Computed example of a mutant assay.
Amino acid sequence: MASTETCQLNEAHPPKERSIEVFSAVLPEIKSQLLSLRHLHPPAYFDAVKDLSDNDLTSFTVDNLENVRVGTTAYGMHIFGKIQLPKSDDGYIHVRVFVGGGEADKCSVHCIHIEAKENAEGGKEFRAIMKKEDELKWFNE
Rank of each mutant, 00 (worst) to 15 (best):
S3R: 09
S3K: 01
S3Y: 10
T4P: 05
Q8S: 15
Q8D: 08
N10P: 01
A12Q: 10
H13W: 04
H13S: 15
P14I: 07
K16P: 02
R18Q: 14
S19M: 03
S19N: 08
S19W: 02
I20T: 15
E21C: 11
V22S: 03
V22Y: 06
F23E: 03
F23V: 03
A25K: 13
A25Y: 09
L27A: 10
P28V: 06
E29A: 14
K31D: 03
S32K: 14
S32L: 11
Q33F: 07
L35C: 03
L35D: 03
L35W: 04
L37Q: 08
R38I: 07
L40E: 11
H41G: 00
P42V: 09
P43D: 12
P43F: 08
F46R: 06
F46G: 07
D47K: 15
V49H: 06
D51R: 09
S53E: 05
D54S: 08
D54W: 07
N55Q: 15
N55R: 14
D56I: 02
D56E: 15
T61G: 14
D63L: 10
L65T: 02
V70P: 00
G71H: 01
T73F: 04
T73D: 01
A74L: 13
A74R: 10
A74W: 05
A74K: 14
G76H: 06
H78L: 14
I79T: 12
K82A: 03
K82F: 09
K82S: 02
Q84Y: 07
P86E: 01
S88V: 01
D89R: 07
G91H: 05
Y92E: 01
I93W: 03
H94V: 01
V95D: 06
V95Q: 01
V97R: 04
V97E: 03
F98K: 06
F98M: 05
F98D: 05
G101W: 06
G101K: 09
G102S: 02
G102K: 07
G102N: 04
G102D: 06
A104L: 02
K106W: 04
C107V: 00
S108H: 11
V109Q: 04
C111Q: 02
C111L: 00
H113A: 13
H113L: 05
E115P: 00
E115K: 13
A116Q: 11
A116I: 08
A116T: 12
K117R: 13
E118N: 12
N119T: 06
A120E: 12
K124P: 00
F126Q: 04
F126S: 03
F126A: 01
A128Y: 00
K131D: 11
K132V: 07
E133P: 06
E133V: 15
D134L: 00
D134T: 09
E135H: 11
E135I: 10
K137N: 13
K137H: 12
W138L: 07
W138H: 13
F139M: 09
E141G: 13
E141A: 13
